[in-house]
């Protein structure tokens, strides 16, 4: 299988690199003879050497079945709406409170149910910050559900930051859908 092979190859290359770093350190036996004594020359050379072209960047052809860079989106469908958030915010808005009310009613009627709340962000900004922001969004929803009487033991959170967009688009319409808490019954 391709992935396994390339992984093994990577390990092989890394092992070799490690070996050469050990091997070479001991073998640099030719001493520099002139480095201390050579004074730079004042002469000016006027000929114009030919510049070599810069090396081409690595370009790896994407697999034929996918356009480059288009995120493939996939998530577990939920019977509950997502709770949406404003940019860089984690307060549960009025519309989100309505959704949380529906979720809380369900969980109170099904005391054996376990609910995971996924926190998500839009694509803008740094991945690490968004990872923490998604956690804060999921926790804000969890805290609100607890305030509605849902036992905390029925709830858990996980943040996917900006890694799992619902809508792969790049406009406010897509971003608004992606800033969300998503409910998954475990």
């Amino acid at each position: 299988m391709k992935g396994t092979r390339s992984w093994k190859w990577a390990v092989l290359v890394l092992s070799i690199a490690a070996l050469v770093s050990v091997g070479c350190a001991k073998k640099q036996t030719v001493k520099s003879e002139g480095a201390q004594g050579a004074a730079p020359a004042p002469g000016v050379v006027t000929e114009a050497p030919v510049k070599a072209p810069p090396p081409a960047p690595v370009t790896v052809a994407p697999p034929p079945e996918a356009a480059p860079g288009v995120a493939v989106t996939e998530e577990k469908l939920s019977q509950f709406d997502d709770v949406r958030f404003d940019f860089d915010k984690s307060e549960v808005r009025g519309d989100g409170r309505k959704t949380c009310g529906v979720v809380a009613d369900y969980l109170k009627k099904h005391p054996q149910a376990k609910m995971q709340i996924e926190g998500h962000c839009d694509e803008r900004g740094t991945a690490e910050y968004n990872m923490a922001l998604g956690e804060r969004r999921a926790t804000a929803v969890m805290t609100y559900l607890v305030s509605l009487g849902v036992p905390k033991a029925a709830l858990s959170t996980v943040s996917f930051g900006k890694e799992k967009p619902l809508d792969p688009g790049h406009d406010e319409g897509a971003w608004a859908k992606n800033r969300r808490a998503h409910f998954v019954l475990k």
């Binding site: 070479c24 520099s32 003879e33 002139g34 050579a38 020359a41």
Partner: peptide
């Protein structure tokens, strides 16, 4: 250094 005719650096490496 071609302008001075001096050796600036010399190294020997071994490996595969």
């Amino acid at each position: 250094d071609a302008t001075q005719g001096t050796l600036l650096l010399a190294k020997r490496y071994t490996g595969t």
